[in-house]
Design a protein around this nucleic acid. Sequence first.
DNA 1: TATTTCACGTA
DNA 2: CGTACGTGAAATAA
Length: 884
Amino acid sequence: MTDSGKPTLLVVDGHSLAYRAFFALPVDNFSTKDGQHTNGIYGFLSMFVNLIKAEQPTHLAVAFDTSRHSFRTDQYPEYKATRSESPAEFKGQIPLLQECLAAMNVTVLTKEGIEADDILATLATRGAAEGYDVLVCSGDRDTIQLVTDDVTLLYPSVQGVSQLKRYTPDAVVEKYGLPPANYPDIAALVGETSDNLPGVPKVGEKTAVKWLTQWGSLENLLANADKITGVVGGNLREHLDDVTRNRSLNALLRDVELEVTPDDLKMQPIDAQAVRDIFARLEFRTLLPRVFEAVGSGEPADEAPAAVAVPAAAELDADALAAWAAEAGGDVALTVVTAAGLPTRIGLAHGDSPVEASWSDEVAAALRPWLESDAPKVLADAKPQFKALRRAGIRLGGLAFDPILAGWLERPSFPDKTLADLVQRHLDEKLPEADPTQLVPETEGATPGQLAWFALRVAVAQRAELPASVAGVLAEIELPTLDALADMELAGVAVSHEKLSGFSAELLARADGVAQLAYAEIGREVNLGSPKQLQEVLFDQLALPKTRKTKTGYSTDAAVLADLRDSNPHPFLDLLLQHREATKLRQIIESLDAAVGAGPADAAGDGRIHTTYVQTGSQTGRLSSTDPNLQNIPIRTEESRRIRAAFEVGAGYETLLTADYSQIEMRIMAHLSGDPGLVEAFNSGEDLHRFVGARVFGVDPAEVTPAMRTKVKAMSYGLVYGLSAFGLSKQLRIDQSEARQLMTEYFARFGAVRDYLRTSVEQARVDGYTETIFGRRRPFPDLTSMNRVLRENAERAALNAPIQGSAADIMKIALFRIHDQLRTDGLASRVLLQIHDELVVEVAPGEWDAVERIVHDRMGDAAELSVPLDVQIGRGANWDEAGH
DNA sequence: TATTTCACGTA
DNA sequence: CGTACGTGAAATAA
């Protein structure tokens, strides 16, 4: 609202300003880590929030061009024809910018065949007529014609996009000597090179203004063209048509049919979560507070009209609750509120009548039959609730849907982490949440019954839009796996504190000793853990050749140091590598040791480590493991295996069993590609790499040398990741030409593999997603990106996704079948760990034979492929012994 | 104090 | 210029 008391309408030309920002800001400083350029978006938004803060508009819209084609190009095909193609780096930014604006609830306007400036002109004209103070912000000079007492133009100066010059009628007169309405006349005479609209030769702004002042109007000037003397007079007479054309083209349309009126453009509170999401994606950090400051965080304690009345949950006693559950047919949503890993409250919902109760022995006893039954249940983020119930002695049955898992399957790249996110996305409502920072929250959070009510409605919405194949993955793979994971987390794995702490002390002593020697080599003490200080030592003090560049300098990673050691041997390098190894191992040991018995509050003191498997933790379908991560325990070096030796069979159990799939990804490649050679390799029983090496190098399997085997092995594994000749040469330390030769030979023998990889990416480009053997999908929007880095990254990931994902599916199927069968067969043995293609099982006394058979068979028959699934079993008192 | 970067462990 | 993850220390921003 301005001083005049009139509302202020701000209309912005999104395209022209983003384009200016694109050139004003260096691309290099504004790209996400996967290569999406963001400088235009950032520059635009930065200017935009400043503008909003400074001008405090009450109404707001941003207009965009739809394409280069418009009614002007219809009239005059050469219009803007000389304008060069906008850079590839810019193209993808406009849709993302529009997403940002949508998240901010800013109206974005486009219209086919109409340029953004015509939309601005229409809104400005209408707004002024309807009593608004109008601000037009555009980088196109033609918008000067819009300026009136009610319409001010904000035009970016050459210094930068954030410096906006205000054009009022007076300012226009001051700059051009004529009122705004005459500006198009000037422009018509002068012409506009950037629009490919030639004007009258030798006529610039000065002459144009002089003529127009003298003759009063363009029409009068043109009518009297024969009275103009000199060369310019002749030029004018020769270019009368051009001037008329220019004048008709540079007149902005003021009556474009729009679906909105100025009144519809009232500023809306932003969707704070959506803004956070998109900014996180674009890796904008400093912008977020600025946006919130300019337009408010939009988190409406103030006005948020609850779109839908949330039904109050009825508080029931144990018997009433049990009766309610027994009567409810169909899906019932369930929410278990937990504290310290145990249930405290429980809520149920079915239809529009949520009910709830505090957890008690009575409630547990009354509800147990229903909870353990197959009656279908919907739980959002079921695993922790499942675990809490198990600690209370109840094993939940009938898990039918989990909105969090469903959301992840639908959008694995950007999973919604909470029910609140899903309520926003699928219901477009706000889940009432208490402000955790307030001791006595102003806003009440949803009660357990209400949470269940929301979860059920989200589930209904998700079920309606989940593709059948994805719904199948949820029901047939993910939900059964969830049960198994909960049990694995509860079980934990026994780890010997004694073994760990002894080793840790040893490593600490060694690291110190090595560090002292390293200091002696360079004559001073530095922090060997600091890449920055190491760069000084290596490249300044020791003047070693510069290595691979990183964002902040030159790399000092192990591969680089090993190269450096070959070319420029120096004792410091060896000592540094030794120090790294020792400190890394020690760090791993320390964090494991801290997790023994400590762990989450709910598991303290049992001498076991309880990891958490994040079922939504990957984009391919794999699990991830956190707190601590037990999927990256060292194995490669002799020394590091001492860590695995600390993972022991627990009290009351007899031994550990490890089982792993050998070359599962290559087997999946063989299956998916149907390559006869590769299929034969796996069916022949011959060692895979020996077999492949024999084919590639044209020798007998017996004659395959270790060097040959290493090469084809690297090639085979690299294929799965989309390896290039460059990458292969680097890894094998051979010439690129030799690497290329190797690839050629390989594909000559295994051509179907290449065909498969090629067609699967092309198919993904068409579909927009990849699919595993079992129907798990992963979207790949970047496969059609104009940005080469983005596109090629997406291509490699798309190549890998069906293979890694199918392997993950197979392992999950094997895992829950083993888990389930151990229980139904009445065995006490239990699965403890999953490391992508390996399982670790704790075997109870006397159960080895039965357990080995179950594990072997269920892993072997988890999927029916055109090649066998080979399973290796190991046995030992600890993980190192059991491994192989 | 919170977030980012580098390095490095696994499949 | 090889996919998929999680963690900790140091550096950097706030």
